[in-house]
Computed example of a mutant assay.
Amino acid sequence: MSIVTEVAAAQSSDALVHFESVLQFETDCWDVHHAMTSGAPDFVLLDVRGPDQYAAGHVPGARHLPHGKIVEAKLTQYSADTLFVVYCAGPHCNGAARAAIRMARLGRPVKTMPGGITGWIDEGFALESSVHKQV
């Protein structure tokens, strides 16, 4: 018996619930890239890092709203059912989780993009810089 099989795998029905649940809370860089480059994405992508980090390079099409400044007044241009996908610097940063908490507290649908800018670059996707699209 290996360390992999030491604990039995979950029943398929339990695994289905678990993995579907994960995707209710997060998406990945590939899926965001596909949606952003295929026309009109059905979500708003938010870069929740600081202004200098955003200006240095961000995901093309992302709006800028630092996680500490997420308040309802900044979101009034979006309908209540608009899905927001938030990202920060990368796996070493909890800014996306902080942003998701603020969005959820405002009753807004939200997912994180784990990996953030680091994941985006790791996938080989280009960044955009110096174009400021603040919410």
Rank of each mutant, 00 (worst) to 15 (best):
C29T: 14
H132G: 01
R102G: 01
G57C: 01
I117C: 00
E6D: 14
V7W: 15
D122Q: 12
H64N: 05
P51R: 10
R49K: 09
I3N: 13
F19E: 06
E26H: 12
C93M: 03
V131K: 12
E26W: 11
E123G: 01
H92G: 13
V17G: 01
M113D: 01
R63G: 00
E123L: 02
G90S: 04
R63W: 01
G57Y: 02
D14I: 10
P60V: 02
V59A: 05
A99R: 12
H18L: 15
R108C: 06
A55F: 09
T112P: 07
P109S: 06
V131N: 12
R108W: 13
A10Y: 13
V135I: 03
P60D: 02
V44E: 04
R49G: 06
R63D: 00
P91G: 15
A73H: 03
S2W: 08
E72C: 07
L23K: 15
S130A: 11
A8M: 14
D47Y: 05
S12Y: 14
M113T: 01
M103D: 05
D14K: 14
G57F: 03
S2T: 11
Y54T: 09
P109K: 05
M1E: 07
A55R: 13
D42T: 13
V48M: 08
T76P: 00
W30G: 03
I70K: 02
